[in-house]
Nucleic acid binder design. Structure first.
Lengths: 152, 152
DNA sequence: AAGTCGCTTGACGTAAACGTCAAGCTTAAG
DNA sequence: CTTAAGCTTGACGTTTACGTCAAGCGACTT
């Protein structure tokens, strides 16, 4: 099989593709999350970097800090000797999953709240100062209180 | 019915209950997200503030900025006159729901990635440098590539 | 040769979300 | 009366994640 050299990307290409700035890519490199090759002084990104960037951005979207993301990425570079670090990482991963599952619940709550907000708004837009609008508003507040376990 | 005066909270009480600092509560007030009463100069938080704080923290956990949260909270104080703002808010809410649903997917992805990471780690911990460990590592990388639609 | 593009490395700036004092008021306890 | 606890308002500091120049290099075009 031929060693068909992998497709590579210039910094601006990769940036455009992922909707980030070149500055951000350099920043990630600075922080040790990306390690592109060099052609002279220009950075050359491979598929590997593209994969990593994808993971970085996904991590960011779920609220991980760059440092946390780096910890995760670094993990796969750990040698067989560092069992201690692996144990530590394992605990962190499990804790992170618990946190993410809580976050998932938060998101579902938020979506519900927003949908209630939409109902509230649409009610008021349909019939200004109408009983329905007021009712929707009261329902929303009541619901919020119920979730906090408060009296009406 | 008696006007049984609602239970109130001192700043440190509310802070402790929600696991935030008093400074944070003052900060939220500064930004217009909370409006506690005053007893002399001391802040007095009511159930209303407690509800709002709950929404604030939940919003934060799903990645909303304080400004965005404020926009949402303010909405329920809009008069019947401001139909334009309500229309704007309605669009924002709907867009936000779409974003949150994307975020939910990200979280599910992240959880999966972490579980793969855990499998990877546990494999290596169980049998250092074993074929299984290597296999898990390769599987993980391959999976990441597959998601990006790349060739192996 | 001169200009333009895209890239580079600093270096300084910035917004968000608080943390961390400092200095002073107030209220209950000793 | 003074001490302590808990509150207040500034005001400055900090971290994260970049944005925004400035100045210069290298390749290509005109």
């Amino acid at each position: 099989m031929p060693v068909r050299s992998e497709r590579t990307y210039a910094i601006s290409e990769l940036a455009r593709e992922f909707g980030v700035t070149a500055r951000a890519l350099r920043f990630y490199e600075d922080k040790g999350l990306l390690t592109p090759l060099r052609d002279g002084q220009a950075r050359v990104y491979r598929g590997r970097d593209r994969v990593r960037l994808q993971l970085i951005l996904r991590g960011k979207r779920v609220g991980l800090s760059l440092q946390e993301i780096k910890d995760i990425l670094d993990l796969y570079d750990l040698g067989d000797g560092q069992r201690a670090q692996m144990q530590v990482a394992l605990k962190k991963f499990k804790a992170r999953i618990v946190a993410l599952e809580a976050q998932k619940r938060d998101i579902l709550h938020a979506i519900e709240s927003l949908k209630e907000g939409i109902a509230f708004l649409e009610g008021r837009l349909a019939a200004p100062a109408s009983p329905e609008g007021v009712a929707a508003a009261r329902a929303f507040e009541k619901e919020a209180r119920r979730r906090l376990g408060e009296g009406g």
